[in-house]
């Protein structure tokens, strides 16, 4: 890890986002979600509640789901961050994205990026969850359309126990 570098009121942050090395000078107080949206223009990561509750801002840090509204950008210097924009490869949707499409796992779509990120993290820790485990595993992600039935169906179609 490089030494922490300040320039005036800014701190230099280097991290890998969706496989790409990114470097920027930001205010120390900058939250990761604002860095992603405002500096990198990766606006797929949404801000929902701003109280660490809704999960719309969920991204992966080192492959694990994290609420990016509750992490300072400076805290994840050097980390490997993945957002919803990094899930598809060569124009092919990630299997979880495809499952949400096939199972109608979204209604208004606002929670969807966070749901996909939380769901893929869940399956990386538990490859064959039961329906109950999927519901518990997604408890930190709220869908205000209450479209949970098809969200859970989407996740189960990728890795769940039938």
């Amino acid at each position: 890890m490089d030494q922490l570098t300040h320039r005036g009121i800014f701190v230099q942050i280097d991290m890998t986002v969706n496989g790409r090395a990114c470097s920027a000078d930001v205010e120390d107080r900058t939250l990761l979600v604002h860095y992603l949206r405002d500096h990198l223009e990766l606006t797929g990561t949404n801000v929902g509640c701003d109280t660490s509750s809704c999960g719309a801002c969920t991204v992966h840090i080192g492959g694990q789901s994290v609420k990016s509204c509750t992490v300072l950008a400076a805290q994840v210097r050097g980390a490997d961050v993945t957002t919803i924009e990094g899930m598809a490869t060569d124009g092919e949707l990630h299997p979880m994205q495809e499952a949400f499409r096939q199972c109608h796992g979204l209604q208004c779509g606002y929670c969807t990026p966070g749901m996909v990120m939380a769901a893929t993290s869940l399956l990386s820790e538990n490859a064959n969850p039961t329906e109950a485990e999927v519901r518990e595993g997604l408890e930190g992600n709220l869908c205000r359309c209450t479209g949970y039935q098809n969200i859970v169906k989407s996740v189960l179609s990728v890795g769940g126990q039938s």
């Binding site: 660490s52 999960g55 969920t58 694990q64 789901s65 609420k67 509750t70 939380a118 993290s121 992600n141």
Partner: peptide, 9 residues
């Protein structure tokens, strides 16, 4: 505690 994403941090 909280939810899985919270427990990761």
């Amino acid at each position: 505690v909280g939810d899985p994403s919270v427990r990761h941090r």
